[in-house]
């Protein structure tokens, strides 16, 4: 199953929400979580851009079996018991390998030994 644990902290009129999502299934899962706080969601930024897992008030990521991921945001809204919750979990199809990768996974090929140098 996929679990979420949350933690909130209120400071100077801002609620900071942290959560950890864990995929304990044996298959890769796409997990989407959403803010449950009544108030605007201020999304985290990295190098000036919103981190790619976030779109509006939802966070979505692909979790490998056994993987845990952390997420967080800020909001002017008041803390609640469940500030963020899982809204969907779906099994991800394994990424298809490109032909270059398939070929690279085969036994290595090397050109034949140069007969002219072999004789020397």
């Amino acid at each position: 199953m996929v679990n979420i644990t949350t933690h909130t902290k209120r400071r100077q009129g801002v609620t900071l929400v942290r959560a950890t999502v864990t995929n304990s299934k044996s298959t890769t899962q796409t997990v989407t979580v959403e803010s449950q706080v009544d108030g605007e969601t201020w999304l985290p930024k990295r190098n000036g851009a919103v981190v790619p897992e976030w779109t509006d008030e939802t966070w979505s990521a692909v979790l490998q079996p056994g993987e845990s991921r952390g997420l967080g945001f800020a909001t002017p809204g008041d803390p609640t018991d469940t500030p963020v919750d899982i809204v969907s979990v779906s099994r991800s199809e394994p990424a298809e390998m490109g032909n270059e990768q398939i070929i690279a996974s085969l036994e290595e090929w090397s050109p034949p030994t140069d007969p002219s140098t072999e004789q020397q």
Binding site: W109, P111, P112, T113, D114, P115, S116, T117
Partner: peptide, 12 residues
């Protein structure tokens, strides 16, 4: 014709 010199330079 792999009796050619420099066969090792072959690049797939």
């Amino acid at each position: 014709n792999y009796a050619t010199e420099g066969a090792r330079a072959a690049d797939l």
